[in-house]
Design a protein around this nucleic acid. Structure first.
Lengths: 182, 182
DNA sequence: AAAGTTATTGAACGTTTGTTCATTTTCAGC
DNA sequence: GCTGAAAATGAACAAACGTTCAATAACTTT
C-alpha cells in the first residue's frame, strides 16, 4: 500500500500528486490516510523510505549474484538503467527527482532526500571497499571519490535516458565508466 | 519581466509556482498575463525559451573569451558549476528539472524541454567539431558521442551540487572529464 | 480635443487543494 | 452475543488554484 503510494509519488512528483489521486490509487479514504501518516508530507516521507529500502535490497541482491564486488556494482547500475529503458514512464531516481523538485518550503523532505542519497552513496563505497579488499581496484584508490564518481554517472545516465529514451548510447558509457575504475 | 518569471519557475518548478506567485513576482495582473501568454503553460514555455537563449548566449561569450574551443567548453562548464555553488538556491538546469518534474499531463512542455536540451547538446557538439578542426581532439573522435558525454557529466555535476552543496569534489571531476576528451 | 484602439485592472468564477471529524463499521476479549 | 476499543468512512471545510471578463486607463490617430 505504501508501495503503491511510492509509485504514484515517484511518477508524478510531490506537488502534482493530490491526496485525491492517492486515495484512488491506494484505495483508502482520507481519514485512514491521515490517521496513519498525519499529513501528505508524512506519507511522502514514508514513500522516500520505501523507495530507498527497495534500492538497498536490490544492491544486496546484486552482490549475492556474484562473488566479484565490481561485477555486482556493474550489475546494479546496468539493471537500473535497463529497467528505466524498458519502462514506459522512464523515471529518474525518485530521490534525485525530489531533491530537484522541492525547495525550503518543504525543508524536512528536502533534507531527508539528501540524507538518503548520501546513504546510497555510502552503500556504493562499501562495495568499492570490498572490491579493493578483493584486489579488483588499486589499494591507492580513494573509494569515497569513486563512490561520488559512480553516483554522478548514474544520475547523469538516468537523466539522459529520460531525455532521450531511444538513444542506446548509455550501455557503452557504462562500460567506459567501469574501465575507469581500475 | 519574462526573465523574472523564468527565475521564479526555475526555482519553484512548474507545479509549485502559482499564478498568484507569478503575479506578485513580476508585478502584473492576471488579465495582462493571460492577454500576453494565454495560459500558465504558455508563460512557462516562454520561460523555457528565455532560459535556453541565456545559456546559448553564455556559451557564445565563453567562445569569445578564448581562441581554444576546448578551453571555451571548460570555461562554460566551470562557470555554470561555479554559479551554482555560489548561489544560495543551487538549482539544477531548468530544462533537466522540468523534464524530471513533468509527465504526459503536460506533454507539450515536456517535449519542448527535451527538444531544447537536445539543442544544447547540438551546441556542445558544434564546439567539439571546432576543437577537432583546430586539432585539439583526435579527428577520429565521435563528436556526437563526446557531446552526449559532456551533457551527462554536466547534468550529473549539477545534481550532485544540489545534493551536496559544500562538497568541492566537482572541480576535480571537471578536470578529469576534460583529460578524457583528448 | 475628440474618437478609436489597445492594454491593464481586479473582483469574481467554478474547481481542486490538503485536511478534519462526527459517524459508522470492524473485530477483539469476555 | 454483547461490549468497548480501534479503524475506516466520506461529507464537509476553508483556502488556494487557474482562468475569465466587464470596466477602466492609457495611448494613437485625426
Amino acid at each position: 500500500m505504501i508501495q503503491k503510494a511510492t509509485n504514484l509519488f515517484w511518477e508524478k512528483g510531490f506537488h502534482a500528486t493530490s491526496m485525491r489521486n492517492l486515495q484512488d490509487h491506494i484505495d483508502m479514504r482520507p481519514g485512514s490516510i491521515y490517521a496513519a501518516f498525519g499529513s501528505k508530507e508524512g506519507l511522502f516521507k514514508e514513500a522516500l523510505k520505501c523507495y530507498t529500502d527497495a534500492n538497498i535490497r536490490h544492491m544486496q541482491k546484486c552482490q549475492e549474484q556474484t562473488s566479484s564486488p565490481l561485477e555486482a556494482l556493474k550489475l546494479f547500475i546496468r539493471s537500473i538503467v535497463k529497467r528505466q529503458q524498458d519502462n514506459a514512464h522512464s523515471e529518474v531516481c525518485m530521490l534525485v527527482k525530489t531533491v530537484s523538485e522541492l525547495t525550503e518550503d518543504n525543508a524536512e523532505l528536502l533534507a531527508e532526500s539528501k540524507r538518503l542519497l548520501n546513504m546510497m552513496e555510502d552503500g556504493l563505497e562499501a562495495v568499492l571497499i570490498r572490491a579493493q579488499d578483493a584486489g579488483e581496484i588499486s589499494s591507492s584508490s580513494d573509494t569515497r571519490r569513486l563512490a561520488q564518481f559512480l553516483q554522478i554517472q548514474l544520475i547523469g545516465f538516468r537523466a539522459y535516458i529520460r531525455i532521450n529514451k531511444d538513444n542506446q548510447c548509455i550501455d557503452q558509457f557504462i562500460e567506459d565508466t567501469f574501465l575507469r575504475l581500475h
